[in-house]
Design a binder for these strands. Structure first.
Lengths: 208, 208, 208, 208
DNA sequence: AATGAATGAGCATTCATTCAT
DNA sequence: AATGAATGAATGCTCATTCAT
């Protein structure tokens, strides 16, 4: 079959991944729109034009679907565009914030924040929490770096990271992709907000 | 019985309210701990030492229970200790933030943030959203006041309010009442965080 | 109390009966309007302005309430105004029909026909069926009498009685007390219908 | 499997309809035997040897099951064997009565009469009432035809139709399929009963 | 690679009934 | 004579999951 169609159709294996990915995307969007528990496997299947049972060819449970969504989001977060080592702590935070907001407004990022870990089975929930802790530590390290190099005022880095994640994650709650606030504007403003909140002194601040 | 025990037992009407309140508290805590959908009415009833059916004497549905939790939280938020009119916009925000954090870490406040409106029936969900919009507007007004009186730097007040609510609400996600971070410490730090983020210039800032 | 009010208030015992009767009437009407199973004890109580629990002072179960309604109806049917012995079988049937229709459109009569015996506990159901059999036999006897005295054409009396009861009972289904067909008219027409159906020959018929 | 067994097994689609129909039949019989409310979905499922949940593959609610039973009954009633146009009004009624009795003693016909519309959701109840009104009108028209052509004595056609339906429907109440009165006998007798009741004069009557 | 059919477990909800007061 | 409060049992319904085809 794939030979008859020449190179038009991707090889079977790749098709599998493609479909799997499409299913995850559809699932994440449905979860974001109506909540995990108000989204049945039938809903997701219908969205894809297949049967409930077909999903079990790609996933072994509803839990796994959510887990994969979370995993993809966490992977995206931990592999944000490499941040140059030359930058000051504050500049690193700035770069991180910009990259993070971009993630958080997409399907999987929103899913991570909006759905939370409650629905996950204990084992998977723990894996996700570990992943999020890694992301958290990333930011904490940057803050500590900044405090040491004098670009960030002295403060409890762990708490501060939580505040920042709060401001960023919350975007997923109120931002509507089709709304009036385009994401570029938001990124810029939230970056200013965070930088002002933590910068050591006025001279390093922007947007004031 | 009530005569024999003197004034120890409250009158029946008050007992009703007391029990109802206790049920709401138990429900909110259960929702916060395991999520709305993983909490069955049986769980809540068991926690209270009564039967599932007994809950229906006080509430007409599971939905109503959640709705009441949200309503109580919203009422608490809109009736935060009156903030003096003499204060600058920035000072008002400061007072608001401190009061808000106190609410958000309690049963109903956490429930509001953690459960969200997805599980609610459309009608009740809309009422809650309206309530939250009122709270949002409260903060927006303070920010605008601050911009006018020069205590807060110029910026999009609506967006800024969202960032602040993000930092504050997120506390409900990561703070464990029994954890190492006591709430006084958090309140103080998050207040500094917010004030620094929005203040007009360094002279008005604290905690740097 | 009853002395203070002189003879105005009936003696306590009679009051009990009065209230009991009122409750039965309310129950029958509710059953007729919405069906036995869609009528809760709370509905009946509300109609009477008392509490669900109060009904248990007068009846020991919902089943008993329905049973009493049926019993009252059957009593009314078996004690229709005595029919003179001098009459022909056909004339007896005529008198019976007129009396029966009057019963069937009232609360308890309608309740008997509309509710049926399904909801009753086996024991009570059997009692009711026995009562209805007695009524049935009453009519069968009249028909047999008529066949013997030549006023009614020869036919299976048991079957014929069933047909007649069908025509009569069905009135409870379609007749609305507030509707356009007043009961006098109906009585007259259904009597003609029945008489024509069973009379021996045209000479005895009316209403043609 | 279906190949191995040749044409013995009907195609899948047809099997679906067959099972659905069997479920309806089982339901109707159970309703007739114990009443709608004393019949749980579990009872029906058990009768069919499947699970409660399996029924939801074929019907979306208990209400729908009853509604379908009623619908089938009404369809059967409105599509009684076409009655020749050449017949007199009286002869048409005669044909109608015979056909109707055949329906009323079968599962769905009995269900229609015995269960009534109370249990149905308002919307479905209204549809059923409309259907029954159509059947009623059918008979009214025949009577009016008969009055015009002189075969039926002058009388209120609507009331008369009600009396006839009463005699016919009531058969569902007292007739036991396994009883001593076979349905042929009943049909014949009730037809005589009705014809005598409405015929214009003795010459057209039968069975006297 | 996907489907139709069926299952089992769980859950919210209703309601007749009880009982201390 | 009546009530408030609570119970237990039953029931309709949903949904993730399975499996033969």
């Amino acid at each position: 079959m794939s030979q008859r169609w020449g190179q038009v159709l991707p090889p079977r294996e790749e098709q599998y991944e493609l479909k799997r990915r499409a299913a995850l995307e559809a699932a994440a969007n449905a979860f974001n729109a109506h909540g995990f528990y108000k989204t049945s496997l039938g809903d997701i299947a219908a969205e894809l034009g297949v049967t409930k049972a077909a999903l079990y060819y790609y996933f072994k449970s509803k839990d796994e679907i959510l887990f994969e969504c979370h995993t993809l989001a966490i992977e995206a977060m931990t592999s944000l565009p490499a941040i140059s080592e030359d930058l000051s702590g504050l500049q690193k935070v700035e770069a991180f914030v910009l990259g993070y907001v971009d993630m958080i407004v997409q399907s999987f990022g929103r899913c991570l924040v909006l759905t939370g870990t409650h629905p996950l089975e204990p084992e998977n929930a723990e894996k996700c929490r570990a992943g999020r802790r890694r992301v958290h530590d990333l930011l904490v390290d940057m803050i500590n770096t900044g405090v040491k190099d004098g670009s960030i005022r002295s403060q409890d880095a762990r708490l501060t990271a939580n505040f920042i994640f709060g401001a960023l994650n919350w975007v997923a709650q109120w931002h509507r992709p089709d709304g009036r606030d385009d994401i570029v504007r938001i990124s810029h403003d939230v970056k200013d907000f965070v930088i002002n909140a933590i910068a050591a002194d006025v001279s390093t601040k922007e947007g004031a």
